[in-house]
């Protein structure tokens, strides 16, 4: 039966020879040598390197205040998870820069998983749930998180321009979450407030905002 259906796909009319000549002339006229993009591994290393460097650089400017108050266990788990998601987001973004590239990391699953895992992790790691001066103490964190995400977004945009986006909405939304993760990482290095609600709303909230911004920008570009 499959053969029968296959047999129905007869070879159709070829395109007009004149059209092909026109196309060939057009692309030949504007042809300049280009260097192919480096391998996925190199691109991944660049993207992941930007993530780490930017988080460390911004945290250095605003001081690594969190390191003094976090326990070794908290640091190991929190920073480990942030690094893991940084690596996964880098990989997912790179996969979407190259048309027809093999996709290993699904973007929607990754974005949701990152928010859920960070939410659970924060609730487990930080026992304080008080809401004293909740907004007043939170706004500077949200601001820093969003600024870090914007810096990352700018660098990411330069990187994404090297590729070709076949699904801009998906890719830019994904990059929005990735940029937001930079913001969360900067705050994880800087903010000394170990309150689960504070971290969840004002730190992880920066990632949600960046993801939403990515979605709207991506929808506009799509």
């Amino acid at each position: 039966m499959n053969d029968e259906i296959t047999g129905m796909f007869v070879e159709g009319d070829p395109p007009d020879a004149a059209t092909l000549e026109k196309i060939a002339a057009r692309i030949s006229a504007s042809a300049k040598p280009v260097r192919a993009l480096p391998s996925n591994l190199t691109l991944w290393a660049i993207s992941f390197g930007i993530f780490i460097a930017l988080a460390l650089l911004v945290a250095k400017v605003v001081h690594f205040k969190a390191i003094g108050v976090l326990s070794d266990r908290q640091m190991g788990v929190y920073y480990g998870i942030l690094l893991l998601f940084g690596a996964l987001f880098s990989r997912a973004v790179i996969e979407r820069m190259i048309p027809g590239a093999k996709r290993v990391v699904p973007s929607t699953v990754l974005s949701i998983a990152a928010l859920v895992v960070l939410g659970i992790l924060v609730a487990v790691l930080f026992a304080d749930h008080s809401t004293e001066n909740f907004v007043a103490r939170g706004m500077p964190c949200l601001r820093l998180g969003v600024i870090s995400a914007l810096l990352s977004g700018f660098l990411g945009w330069r990187l994404l321009q090297r590729g070709y986006l076949v699904s801009p909405r998906e890719t830019i939304t994904l990059y929005g979450f990735f940029a937001g993760l930079v913001g969360v990482s900067v705050l994880a290095l800087h903010c000394p407030i170990l309150n689960s609600l504070h971290v969840l709303v004002w730190h992880v909230g920066a990632m949600v905002l960046a993801g939403l911004a990515g979605f709207f920008l991506g929808s506009y570009a799509d």
Binding site: S30, A31, V34, L37, M97, P99, R162
Partner: peptide, 8 residues
């Protein structure tokens, strides 16, 4: 033509 650099 625009995306030719993305082919490896």
């Amino acid at each position: 033509h625009k995306a030719r650099a993305t082919f490896r």
